[in-house]
Amino acid sequence: MNSGKTRATLLGVVAAYMFYLAYQLFESRADTDTTMTPAARILFIAFFVLAGIAVAVYTVHVWRHSSEQEEEQKTKDDENSLK
C-alpha cells in the first residue's frame, strides 16, 4: 500500500471519528445534567457531520490521486522493461 493510500486511511479514521463525536453528542440528548443547550448541541452535531463529510471527501480525493499515481508508475515501469 503506497503512502498516499495509508494517508487516506488515516484521514478516513479521522472522518469516522468526526461522525462518532456527532453520534455521541446526539446520544447524550437525554442527559439532564448537561450545561449544553439543545441549540448548541444541534450546532455542534451539524458541525461535526459536515467536518466528517469534508474530511471523507478529501480522503476519497487523496485515495484516487494516489491510485492514479500508482497506475502511472506501473505504466512507466512496463514501458521501461520493454525497452
Binding site: 479521522v14 468526526m18 447524550s28 448537561t34 450545561t35 467536518a51
Partner: peptide, 22 residues
C-alpha cells in the same frame, strides 16, 4: 467543563491538527 463540551474541544483539536497537516 461539561462532558459534551469536552468532546467538542477534543474534536476541534484533532480537526485543527489534520487541517494543519493538509
Amino acid at each position: 467543563l461539561d462532558a459534551n463540551y469536552q468532546r467538542v474541544v477534543k474534536g476541534f483539536v484533532l480537526l485543527a491538527a489534520v487541517v494543519f497537516d493538509i
